[in-house]
Design a protein around this nucleic acid. Structure first.
Ligand code: MG
Length: 234
DNA sequence: GCGACAG
DNA sequence: ATCTTGTCGC
């Protein structure tokens, strides 16, 4: 099946019935194993803008490379597209997935193939059909992907301890689908779940390695700042 | 049926 | 996500 064109078509037609079916198929192909190598990490985020009654999404991909024991900014990419699909919890892929595909297209193949991990501002398998935005991106790119959300969603979880590194499992449909992870002392935690090609056990190690002075993982934070900067320049 | 509900 | 300045607290 054509994950890209099918998703784009569903998004443009706002076809929720097909969207549900699409997500169920997506979930079937998720692989919850693997510990990604952290060489080049990509962070994805987006911001929105209204112009002449039309809504546009400003999508950004920020790349960081590991040098020794820390990550150094490499380069940014962006795209701007009109969006038709509204924000509906549980159908985020059909809104921001469109932006990701567009931005990913801007990245040269030589750069793309260096990416060893993708971090997404949203959920992975912690989703009604175990097919959040991070799952979609992971399956389309076939690169290990992690969903890093700023808020919880469905299911059950308890809040972790107050220190960086403290965590608690997220349970949905009687299964552990991710973790609530404290990335900074005394600061609101992050809700982390696998997108594709990564195990739940390796989630905390990877996310903590990419968060030091801020709550949000470095690549996602940079993508967020960059998309807003672009927006304010238009 | 009602309310909650990633960004 | 977006509309928005200063301000309080860890
Ligand atoms: Mg975002």
């Amino acid at each position: 099946m054509d994950y890209i064109n099918d998703m784009l078509d569903i998004s443009k037609k706002k076809d929720l019935k097909r969207a549900v079916h699409f997500q169920k198929k997506l979930a079937f192909h998720v692989l919850l194993s693997g510990t990604p190598v952290l060489d080049t990490v990509l962070g994805f985020d987006a911001s929105y803008l209204e112009k002449d009654g039309k809504e546009y999404i400003i999508s950004t991909c920020s790349l960081f490379e590991r040098k020794e024991n820390n990550f150094v900014f490499w380069k940014n990419f962006y795209s701007i597209d009109e969006v038709f699909f509204p924000y509906i919890p549980g159908f985020f892929t059909f809104r921001e997935g469109v932006g990701f595909i567009s931005c990913w297209d801007k990245i040269p193949l030589s750069v793309r193939k260096k990416v060893s991990l993708i971090m997404v501002d949203g959920h992975g398998i912690y989703h009604p059909h175990r097919a959040g935005l991070a799952v979609y991106i992971g399956i389309v790119t076939q690169i290990p992907t992690i969903g890093c959300a700023k808020q919880g969603f469905l299911g059950n979880y308890t809040m972790p301890g107050l220190k960086r590194g403290d965590r608690a499992p997220i349970i949905f449909d009687d299964e552990i689908v991710g973790i609530v992870l404290r990335t900074r002392d005394y600061v609101k935690p992050m809700w982390i779940s696998p997108g594709h090609l990564i195990s739940i056990d390796s989630l905390s190690r990877v996310v903590l390695d990419l968060t030091e002075n801020y709550r949000i993982p470095l690549p996602i934070r940079e993508a967020h700042i960059f998309s807003k900067k672009l927006k304010n320049m238009l």
